[in-house]
Amino acid sequence: MYNSKYVISGLVIFLAVFSYPFWGNLASKDYNGPKLSLPADQKQCIEPVEFMRAEHMTLLNQWRDSALRDGKRVYVASNGATWEASLQKTCMSCHTNKAEFCDTCHLENAVEPYCWTCHVPPKGNE
């Protein structure tokens, strides 16, 4: 191989930089999710927490399509409870604190959903 000195050392440097996120975090503390402020008067969301955390956006998309296209605006949850399929009227009536609930987590995960350019968050929040 020509110039193997340079090629190999270059590769090593590249790999070191490339894998930095992995070894750079080895020494640091365990990751803790952001502290969210949860509704005080409610114990449970409409579905289990793990499901909501991972799939709330999918669920909202299903709600949207069902409400707008099929006219079915009542969501029957896995425990049999029924909810109006509405971000503003259902979700935000418990999660009245958009800044400390939605935004905190979205910020931490570097996602910027643009739900609230149209949907109206509860007033006490602004």
């Binding site: 499901f51 999918t58 669920l59 299903q62 069902s66 099929d70 605006r73 009542v74 029924t82 399929a85």
Partner: peptide, 11 residues
């Protein structure tokens, strides 16, 4: 598999 089977109905 973990996802809840969604079910919807009219008001």
């Amino acid at each position: 598999a973990a996802a809840v089977k969604p079910s919807y109905k009219e008001d």
